[in-house]
């Protein structure tokens, strides 16, 4: 058996990775909750954001954490355009078509990046990548501590946008009653695009938090797609609280599985949870409706 200290450290590290997962899932669940679409391109869009962060660091020397200020608006714009001009018009509103269009989009993005950057993995060197924060007897990785706080802060900002602004009110109105919202003068396709854009902005933040400790290659996002879907399904499709709790939970489960069964089987733990939740409780922990 491992000493309790190692287990505690692994679980805490898992919790902090889970916070970044939660941020990715937050975007996904927001998009699902409002547009009722499963955005299969979410992982590929995360890869785009990660490449963005990498390019800024490599060529302009921008610190990954500071690049949030550039990448979040950029991804917001990209997301807005993708929903407004590609996904929305191409899928004619049918659930199956949306799934296929976002799948097509993810393939275009992945292979576009592959053609442009080849399949090399790229990393960013920072001074703080291997720094640790001491918390009593525990040693915690500095980038992961930052990840936890920034992810929670972003969730708070997202919540504030949804609850306290006019745009947020419009988004919630469309999520509840699309036709009614349209009748009182809310432009539904604009709200859809803004929602999608907010989800992509979350990805930009997640990308900036991941890059100091992770690598990027054209298929990096793939690994995160199913994890994010697992979190969203676990937390309940469309539930923001669910995405947060689900993300933290999955991070801990992955850390525990990796510790006890090795890295590759750690992933299996996630998929098994995913399958079990889908089979036995498709509404998730916090979801009200299917």
């Amino acid at each position: 058996m491992y000493s309790p200290l190692i287990v505690a450290e692994a679980l805490l590290n898992g919790l902090m990775l889970g916070a970044v997962y939660a941020l990715i899932a937050l975007g996904l669940t927001l998009i699902y909750g409002v547009l009722h679409i499963v955005n299969f391109a979410h992982g590929a869009l995360l890869t785009v954001a990660m490449f963005g962060v990498w390019l800024l660091a490599e060529h302009l020397g921008v610190d990954p954490y500071l690049s949030i200020l550039i990448m979040a608006p950029a991804m917001f714009g990209l997301g807005y355009a993708a929903q407004r001009f590609v996904i929305g018009p191409a899928s004619h509103g049918s659930d199956n078509s949306i799934l296929l269009v976002t799948l097509g989009l993810s393939i275009i993005i992945e292979n576009g990046l592959l053609a442009g950057f080849r399949s090399d993995t790229r990393t960013i060197d920072t001074d703080y990548a291997f720094q640790v924060v001491e918390l009593g007897p525990l040693l915690l990785s500095f980038p992961r501590v930052v990840g936890l706080f920034v992810a929670l802060l972003s969730a708070l900002v997202l919540w504030a946008i949804l609850e306290r602004t006019d745009v947020g009110r419009a988004i919630r109105a469309v999520a509840k009653e699309k036709l009614g919202a349209a009748l009182v003068g809310i432009e539904v396709s604009h709200v859809y695009a803004v929602t999608f854009a907010l989800g992509c902005a979350c990805l930009a933040v997640a990308a900036a938090l991941l890059m100091p400790v992770f690598y990027v290659s054209p298929t990096t996002g793939r690994a995160f797609v199913l994890v994010a879907f697992t979190i969203v399904v676990l937390g309940g499709m469309g539930s923001i609280v669910g995405a947060l709790v689900g993300g933290l939970l999955i991070g801990v489960v992955e850390a525990a599985c990796s510790l006890f069964f090795g890295d590759s089987l750690g992933q299996i733990g996630i998929f098994v949870i995913f399958i079990l939740v889908l089979l036995f409780r498709p509404t998730g922990l916090f979801g009200a409706r299917q």
Partner: peptide, 13 residues
């Protein structure tokens, strides 16, 4: 690499 799949993705959409 990837150009053929890129075209496939576009054709799917």
């Amino acid at each position: 690499p990837g150009v053929d799949l890129l075209v496939f993705g576009a054709i799917l959409i």
